[in-house]
Design a protein around this nucleic acid. Sequence first.
DNA 1: TGACATTGTCACAACTTTGCCACATAACCT
DNA 2: AGGTTATGTGGCAAAGTTGTGACAATGTCA
Lengths: 231, 231
Amino acid sequence: MTAKKVLIIDDESSIREMIAIALEMAGYEYLEAENIQQGHEIVVDHRPDLILVDWMMPGGSGIELTRRLKKDATTAEIPVIMLTAKSEEDNKIQGLEVGADDYITKPFSPRELVARLKAVLRRATPQGVDEPIEIDNLVLDPISQRVTIGTRPLDMGPTEYRLLKFLMTHQERAYSRAQLLDQVWGGNVYVEERTVDVHIRRLRKAIGSTHDYLIQTVRGTGYRFSAQRSL
Amino acid sequence: MTAKKVLIIDDESSIREMIAIALEMAGYEYLEAENIQQGHEIVVDHRPDLILVDWMMPGGSGIELTRRLKKDATTAEIPVIMLTAKSEEDNKIQGLEVGADDYITKPFSPRELVARLKAVLRRATPQGVDEPIEIDNLVLDPISQRVTIGTRPLDMGPTEYRLLKFLMTHQERAYSRAQLLDQVWGGNVYVEERTVDVHIRRLRKAIGSTHDYLIQTVRGTGYRFSAQRSL
DNA sequence: TGACATTGTCACAACTTTGCCACATAACCT
DNA sequence: AGGTTATGTGGCAAAGTTGTGACAATGTCA
């Protein structure tokens, strides 16, 4: 396995240094961005596997950056850990709401940092490189975030896209509605299970009748993506 | 699947009642403990699948109980949801730090409760990894939840699938109808024994005449799955 | 702001599965 | 053989699951 890249966005050089040492010892690759304005570009350029953002940043807040990252579909899946000072405890909630995956309260030990980081990475989808996935002429390209059949581009909403992507990356496997909600919507959303059906329907519609056999119903359970026709 | 047991620890009987109704409707089993002092013992005794704890408890805090539960290795994995009043928002953080898995702010709707509860349970229950079972060209794959002979996928209902799965994982062994009802239907359903025969028949039909010798009748007893043809 | 797209829910329609019955067949026994 | 019991079969009504269109709420974008 290649070393995971961790991007640090923090203005305090002493903290950056401490983190750098901790990461190196734990076998991670280290990227840094001093200035939050550069944050977004650096993320897009280097595609880190995880980002550490300091909450307290002069001239702009880490929370703003996090929000921006989580909104952008190309960076949304990169996990973010926020660093907050003890006195800013209340902000944790705000941080989590904006989409941060975890937070660490300063001061923290290098060991704690690495432990949290491991946990978050473990939870994060172990997706490989962003290779396009092609099955039976249906192509999903994660870079351009586009789905095509032959030359025809398909029109679908972000949720349908994520759902399809998940199913395609895990083809030949049956998932319950609950599991799909977990994986596609995210663990702690409050959404009816039947909503999954509706999105499946929209997906099938978008894909069209020539290929809708790819998305199969597993009665009593949920759904499955499979190139093998079921009947 | 057996009903999940949910333990409620709260002093307000009106809330307990509301929760009880919501749980019942959603198909959960309901346990209650009025007094926090009893909390720990009840947990150890009944091993609930999830615990709801009110933050506000006279004479002792729910947080204390939660901490105790999460410290004890035998109860640590049981998920805990805390109930907090709006004004106690700041306590959420403390709750999460103590190890609570989620929190709900009062007032909350029954639906919200059930949804959160589902989400937490979903996260807490991991899936085992099952290997496909292959016998005489008949393959049952628990991952895709599909049964195939060669390349042909078989069409059967969920009950037939479970029945077949059970028989295949216990091949060469005869089971009575009662045992099958127990294992495949679940312990406490009331179903006629002859119903098993009907499902066996459907199974044989689904498998087709080329392979129906695999499911054998054991006269006076029940049925058996065996790759070895009996006379 | 207003048009437009997306999302989650619902109510109802369409379809499957299930359990049971009644009767047909088969196996077993004396 | 004839009687007796056990199992196979087709069909059916009820229950359960999934498909579908419409709607309101919300978010997005120029």
